[in-house]
């Protein structure tokens, strides 16, 4: 099967430091793919490269066969790739509902309209409310996002990402900072929302990874050292020494 997202020999250098060193990654359509690796391995940097925040120093990134490694983020998003941020990135002055409306309306062709108040576009409001319902934020719909609790902001972060209806979804540590119960709900939600779509997720909690994902890639020092089914990765000697052993012992 043709990969929907394909990275070949991607390098990224910040000044003198090479953070990503020849990363290769293939994400297949419809799969839920975990990207794991120790702190500072470059997982978030890789997300930034894929989503267009930075351009790679060299190498190729293809989305559905198209080169995207020189495109600006908005163009990549319009090609159907949505991402969330490890450090919550929302619109603090706007209410939760308005956060969602902003995200939803980007696909409704009313962006620059001044014909009616935004709240009067009922299709947008309905969709925005529906997603808020999904992430259990309906009670907080009128609360400014900046005043939400941390875990609620995390939920809003994910909701924003899903609201542009992307085919390829990149989530950077979606359950970080959540309680056991919130995290379980989030995993269930992600599972449901990514049905028929492609998911690439960075996650430190291995139980979440094994529960959610069909395949796992392991990133260590900017290189993907292994890619495969969860069982294979669990058994992989290089992975055990580089990563899994340490995480499981203090998880």
């Amino acid at each position: 099967m043709e990969p929907v997202l394909c990275l070949t020999q991607v390098f990224k250098r910040f000044g003198p430091i090479e953070i990503i060193r020849g990363a290769d990654l293939k994400v297949l359509p419809g799969e839920r793919h975990a990207l794991i690796g120790p702190n500072g391995a470059g997982k978030s940097t890789l997300f930034n490269l894929i989503s267009g925040r930075f351009a790679p120093t060299s190498g190729e990134i293809r989305l559905g066969g198209r080169r995207i490694d020189r495109m600006p983020p908005e163009q990549i998003n319009r090609l159907g790739l949505g991402r969330s941020f490890q450090i919550t990135s929302i619109f603090p002055r706007l209410s939760s509902l308005e956060n969602m409306r902003i995200a939803v309306m980007s696909r409704h062709g009313v962006k620059f309209s001044v014909r009616r108040p935004l709240s009067a576009y009922s299709a947008i409001s309905d969709r925005a409310s529906a997603i808020l319902d999904d992430v259990r934020l309906s009670d907080k719909r009128h609360v400014p996002a900046g005043e939400l609790a941390y875990s609620e902001q995390r939920a809003l972060e994910i909701a924003l990402t899903l609201a542009t209806d992307p085919d390829v979804i990149l989530l950077d540590e979606p359950t970080s900072g959540m309680s056991r119960r919130e995290s379980e709900h989030m995993v269930e939600l992600i599972h449901r929302m990514t049905d028929g779509k492609t998911l690439l997720v960075v996650e430190h909690d291995m139980s979440v990874v094994f529960q959610l994902c069909d395949r796992i890639s392991v990133l260590v020092y900017g290189t993907v050292i292994a890619s495969g089914a969860p069982e294979t990765i669990r058994e992989d000697e290089a992975v055990r020494t580089a990563y899994l052993g340490t995480t499981e012992s203090h998880a």
């Binding site: 908005e74 998003n77 949505g82 929302i90 924003l160």
Partner: peptide, 12 residues
């Protein structure tokens, strides 16, 4: 509030 986030939501 957050220009960067808008770009990742598809806005120029």
């Amino acid at each position: 509030d957050n220009e960067m986030r808008l770009q990742f939501l598809g806005y120029r």
